[in-house]
Nucleic acid binder design. Structure first.
Lengths: 338, 338
DNA sequence: TTGTACGCGTTATCAG
DNA sequence: CTGATAACGCGTACAA
């Protein structure tokens, strides 16, 4: 490995171009007051030396980083990956860099990540949902760094939200299952600890079931980690009951796909023997057999909106206006009448 | 939004603790020479003020950022998401932050990302494959910033690699298909432009087919974007030929799943009417029906290894020792004899 | 339009 | 073991 070379500095560029560092700085920041001639000499020198502004120096002097942070539970979840990708693309067009960290659904780790990002001087932060330590909010508020909560929605909230109401979104899906005559319905939910989306989806399913005069007993609710195998184990447990459910609501598409695989392994015919529905409408949903009936969520648009909002909050130092998205059921064929 | 508050500085902490900034700095960097008593006073003050070191200042003074960069084609590809997640986790245990950017398979964008990361003073960079602008390498070399190329492998390379030989990995998979008696084999490859993995996998398939004395004519090779629908369109085209292939090699699992979906839509029975194989062994592979025969790739272990290597290269300022991983075929049931 | 000079928050060197 | 103090690279009043 070549030894670490010292980066060319503003000073080097200035000397090469025969101007002062101030002028170079002005050129780089597109400040208007630079003569075309001078500007050309400077940009030439920049080219020649392969100069890149030093981020630290810049942050120190300007108290601006052109950086937005995003802390998500995990990158391995396609819905966040997609949203973050869109967020990054939107920010990039504004010349802003995205800093991504993942908390692994651990609130303590999230707090540390927020703290680290504040130290890095991010101009704004995206967080997922609102299930976290109060201390995390305190930190954000104390610093006055704008933040947006995403992937869920609450009205009349003190926070700025970009997302959809997970509870309300789940309800019509379950109602459509109920409409097929199912009365013994179970749920394979995501882990609800520090996950408001999982909590709300479960609550929405319960709303629908109880709204139909039925019950969702605790024994028919199993929480599973975000991997197909966990859903498979849950399904096996549910189907081994004396009177097994005829329909299973899954907290998301990955769980639904895992449940389907296990159901097939048990020799069940889908959807004839068992109705299974998911949530999120990731690519996977249309690739399994039978294709999954699920709830479509506009992940990319949410990411784009978060970008727009955070930049506005940063520039206008204004409070952010929450944006609520609507979801819709996508009927594909994993639901049958009882 | 609360107005942006000024962060507490080292100076504030020093004043509160009744010591000098130098001492505070020493405490924070775990430098040994600080009395327990003093250290306690300092950490107390840090707690009280909610102090977080200013990243820019630190970078400026120490010429170290504790940051590693990773530039991947896209986060929406599960294989990179998984690898990057592992990379991040490994780095985190060493107190290093990961900066992720995605190039969208655009070499110009990648060059800009590298430049930006260098400006941010990253201590090392992970790149995917070796299909990029020479200028990008020049920049890296000029700066002497350690970098690792991942997700592919070349022996006797001037670069440091962490990955597997895509060409060699594809060969036995295709040979196992040939062993089932297939003679008309087609390929749905990834887009090969600036994607050495896609190129190599295609080459590996050709190696196997020609090694068996058969041909892989250009008309039986279709490049498709990394989405199921593109693979579906490709499959439809292939199957509409006068004498359609009896087996289709796909450049990755997502393409394979998309091809399967379309094949079913055409009324074909899988694998009886058509053999389809994938590559990568992402979760999806075991969730489709029939489950996909594919090549297992240790994505997480690659991410961890990249972390280890980059940290070592940074600390010892030494050349990195390439690490080659082996892959293996996972036979699941999407292959039938002709 | 351009240059001079200071300060941003931290680390590191050197005395004490 | 601790305290002054000089860098580090850049932006920006202020002056010219």
């Amino acid at each position: 490995m070549t030894p670490r070379k010292p980066l060319p500095t503003l000073d080097d560029v200035a000397r090469h171009a025969g101007v002062s560092t101030a002028t170079v700085s002005r050129c780089l920041n597109n400040s208007a007051s630079v003569r075309g001639d001078t500007r050309r000499r400077v940009t030439e020198a920049v080219e020649m030396l392969g100069y890149t502004p030093h981020f630290g120096g810049r942050a120190l002097a300007s108290n601006r980083t052109n950086t937005i942070g995003a802390i998500i539970p995990t990158m391995e979840n396609a819905i966040f990956a997609r949203g973050v990708q869109a967020l990054q693309e939107s920010l990039a067009t504004a010349g802003v860099t995205l800093l991504v960290a993942s908390s692994g659904y651990d609130p303590d780790r999230e707090l540390k990540q927020v703290s680290a990002m504040l130290g890095r001087g991010v101009d704004g932060i995206m967080l997922i949902g609102d299930a976290r330590l109060q201390k995390t909010y305190d930190l954000l508020l104390a610093r006055g760094v704008p933040y947006v909560l995403a992937w869920n929605f609450r009205s009349n909230s003190q926070h700025t939200w970009v997302g959809f109401n997970n509870r309300l979104a789940m309800r019509p899906l379950v109602e459509s299952v109920l409409a097929q005559g199912h009365t013994r319905i179970a749920m394979i939910a995501g882990i609800t600890s520090f996950n408001d989306r999982a909590v709300d989806r479960l609550a929405g399913a319960r709303d629908a079931i109880e709204g139909a005069g039925l019950k969702l007993p605790a024994k028919l609710v199993i929480e599973a980690e975000y991997v197909p195998a966990a859903a498979g184990a849950a399904l096996r447990k549910l189907m081994s009951r004396k009177s097994p459910p005829t329909a299973i609501i899954c907290g998301n598409d990955v769980l639904a796909a895992g449940a389907m695989r296990e159901a097939r392994a048990l020799g069940l015919t889908l959807p004839g023997d068992l109705t299974i529905v998911g949530f999120d409408d990731i690519e996977l949903a249309s690739l399994v057999e039978p294709p999954l009936t699920t709830v479509h969520v506009p992940h990319r648009r949410m990411g784009q909106t978060v970008a727009k909002l955070l930049l506005a909050m940063r520039d206008q130092e204004t409070v952010g206006q929450s944006v609520e998205f609507q979801t819709e059921i996508v009927e594909r064929g994993s639901v049958a009448s009882v």
